[in-house]
Amino acid sequence: MAGAGVRDLLIEGPWQHHDIAANGIRFHLAAGRSLAPDRPLVLLLHGFGEFWWAWRHQIPALDEAGFAVAALDLRGYGASDKTPRGYDPLTTAGDIAGVIRSLGHGTAVLVGHDWGGIAAWSTVAYAPAQVRGLVSVAAPHPLAYPWRHGLRDLAFFQIPLLPERRIMAEDGAFIENLHRSRTAPASLFPNAAEARRYRDALMLWPSPHCALEYQRSFVRNQVRSAGRSYRRALHATFAGPVLSVHGQLDPIVPLAAMAAAGPYIDGPHTVIDLPRVGHLPHEEAPELFTAALLQWLEQRS
Results as ranks from 00 to 15, higher is better:
G3W: 03
D8W: 07
L10R: 15
I11M: 11
G13S: 00
W15L: 01
W15Q: 08
R33W: 07
L35H: 02
A36C: 05
D38N: 15
L41A: 13
V42Y: 03
E50A: 15
F51Y: 12
W52A: 11
A54W: 06
W55G: 11
W55H: 01
E64M: 05
R75L: 10
G76A: 01
A79L: 05
K82N: 04
L90A: 15
L90S: 15
T92F: 09
D95Y: 09
A97R: 01
S102W: 10
S102M: 04
S102C: 02
G104T: 10
V111M: 14
V111W: 09
G112M: 11
H113N: 14
W115Y: 09
I118T: 06
A119M: 02
W121H: 11
V124I: 13
Q130Y: 01
L134P: 03
P140F: 10
P140D: 12
H141A: 12
P142R: 00
H149F: 08
H149L: 07
L151P: 00
L151A: 15
D153K: 09
L154C: 03
F156K: 04
Q158Y: 03
I159C: 06
L162W: 14
E164M: 08
R166W: 12
I167V: 15
H179R: 07
H179C: 09
A186E: 15
F189E: 08
F189N: 05
F189A: 00
A195R: 11
R199D: 09
L202S: 03
M203L: 08
L204G: 00
P206K: 10
A211P: 05
L212F: 06
E213L: 12
E213N: 03
Y214G: 13
Y214W: 12
R216Q: 08
R216T: 07
F218A: 02
F218C: 02
R220W: 06
N221W: 07
R224V: 10
S225T: 04
S229W: 02
R232T: 11
H235G: 13
A236P: 07
T237C: 11
F238K: 00
G240P: 11
P241W: 04
P241V: 05
P241I: 04
I252C: 15
A256R: 13
A257M: 03
M258Y: 04
A260C: 12
A261C: 14
I265A: 12
G267N: 11
I272E: 12
L274I: 13
R276C: 13
L280W: 14
A285M: 09
P286C: 12
L288M: 15
A292L: 04
L293D: 04
W296C: 04
R300P: 06
S301G: 13
S301Y: 10
